[in-house]
Amino acid sequence: MTRETALSAVPDLRRFYATAAFHRGNASDTVPDERVTLTGVRVDLADLADYSRLCGFSLTGILPLTYPQLLGFPLQMAVMAGEGFPLPLIGAVHVENVVTVHRPLQADDRLDLVVHAQNLRPHRRGRQVDLVTEVSVKGEPAWHGVSTYLARGAEHPEAPTSPAPPLDGDETSTGPAVGPVWRLGENLGRSYAAVSGDWNPIHVHALTARPLGFSSAIAHGMYTYARAVAALAPRLPDAGVTSRVWFRKPVRLPSTVRLRSCVSPGRTLSRLESVDAEVEHAIIEQVW
């Protein structure tokens, strides 16, 4: 029997981080059958503008492909912080994300959000779970997102992998590296936290990231992903797009990264890498 938790307002994410240490997860091999919903969400235009400016989207009447993810994130947190959720909140790492846009979302649409967890499965280095976010407008499905989080733990070397498409053989992997170069400042984590509400301490400051095992603050994966989507946005249709990201090595702040892309009809394939091309931070594929 599915449990429905209807929220009346967007939960404050800071509350989750404050109590995160108490959610240690459990050994259960299933996720609670729970759906968290929030209906009639209206996008605050000022927030949207701040988000768009920071990530490089043009401010239009249509929501950026990544924006509903930001709206659904507090609901994801509510699911993961819920009783009986098998993975701990602290240390869960965002490893993959897939978004499909069925129809363009207008900034003045009233959005109904539903989030649930599914597909708890082993990973080579622990266990992973999918958090599914569905956005609909007046009952019509519009946006579908699957965020995969990994909790390190007992290793499962035999677990199937979900490999990113290779860039070898693509035009982007030969000749001099070409593509937008971004200098990501030390304060980027705080800037993005301010527009997204995601004040996870690993992003905020080196001092708050250090107790969690990072020598410096790291960029929000959803920021670097959004930045890449924004850079490619002019090539993409507004709907009918599936956009997928595989997060690799975290982007330490501050640092300079490059987005190398191979653009062909119906598909973009990009690699976010350190400017010396030594470190691969993410692979982004978009098809339509």
Partner: peptide
Amino acid sequence: AVDYVHGD
């Protein structure tokens, strides 16, 4: 004009 952004 040319599309130089992604290296074309």
